[in-house]
């Protein structure tokens, strides 16, 4: 990757060249010194010194979105979403548990709990931040917190079968026109990244169902265990596939008996 000369706008309204991307920036998180490569997110920087910031919409394998607002922390007396906030200047001072942060998380939790009141993780946080769902919000408890992890996972696989549609409180995850999504390949990535277990699916040895659609499973020609759905493997360009365990075994025996490993 070529090095880029970045610029940034300072609070004192001057334009300055940014340091090089390989440079380290340093500051404090909850009073502890930390130095990280330029552009590291605050969440990553905190994790590097073992500081845990609660997150919900964040998933390490997906692009950050910053929509759940649980990971808000105080940076130089302003609140910022740590999953997105890039550290680009030395001298930062971060507080991950200030009174302002506490108030913000309590508010956000109250709202998220109204959607998923039975989620264990949210319930645990609610105890810590003294939050309870507000009955005046009405019955919104469908179990989905609209974090969009499922949609981002579906995008990341290149399928883009589901999306978040509608505005305001009508916003929801669905296939096009609220119908079973035709593009879905039944890979279950959406369900696997869902933090609240809202996305339901059923799985048997030869079939799988999700989003109102049924998928036929491809069975491992050696052991007969399910490998993946037909469409899922077709998308990956592998119509016939061994299950992970048999593949390992086949590779190992090729290594032992053959002239060498050809991949």
């Amino acid at each position: 990757m070529t090095k880029q000369q970045f610029i940034h706008v300072d609070a004192d309204a001057t334009v300055k060249p940014m340091p090089q991307t390989s440079d380290l920036v340093s500051g404090t998180i909850d009073g502890r010194e930390v130095a990280v490569p330029w552009g590291t997110t605050l969440l990553e920087a905190a994790a590097s010194i073992g500081t845990v910031i609660p997150t919900l919409c964040h998933h390490p394998a997906l692009p950050p979105d910053g929509n759940c607002r649980l990971c808000l922390v105080e940076v130089d007396s302003r609140l910022a979403a740590s999953c997105l906030f890039p550290l680009r200047r030395s001298g930062f001072s971060v507080s991950t548990e200030s009174p302002k942060v506490f108030e913000a998380r309590a508010f956000v939790l109250k709202l998220l709990l109204s959607r998923a009141p039975n989620d264990e993780y949210l319930k645990e946080l609610a105890v810590k931040y003294e939050a309870a769902p507000d009955p005046r919000l009405g019955d919104l408890a469908d179990g989905c917190v609209r974090c969009g992890r499922c949609v981002r996972a579906c995008q990341a696989t290149g399928t883009e079968a589901i999306s978040l549609v509608g505005r305001s409180q009508e916003r929801q995850v669905t296939g096009p026109f609220f119908e079973p999504p035709a593009q879905c390949v039944g890979c279950l990535a959406c369900a696997k990244v869902c933090p609240t277990g809202y996305i339901v699916f059923s799985e048997e040895r030869t079939s799988r169902s999700i989003w109102g659609r049924d998928f036929e499973m491809v069975l491992c020609p050696i052991c007969g265990e399910p490998v993946g759905s037909l469409q899922e493997l077709a998308r990956a360009g592998a119509a016939e596939e061994l299950c992970p365990a048999c593949r390992r075994r086949a590779m190992a025996s090729a290594l032992v008996s053959g002239p060498g490993l050809s991949l």
Binding site: R69, F107, L111, D134, L137, R167, S168, R171
Partner: peptide, 19 residues
């Protein structure tokens, strides 16, 4: 009505305030 619904505070919080 015009909240895009992306972030929780605006999506649900405005609903609570309105109620």
């Amino acid at each position: 009505g015009e909240s895009c619904g992306k972030c929780a505070p605006c999506r649900e919080g405005l609903g609570l305030i309105l109620r």
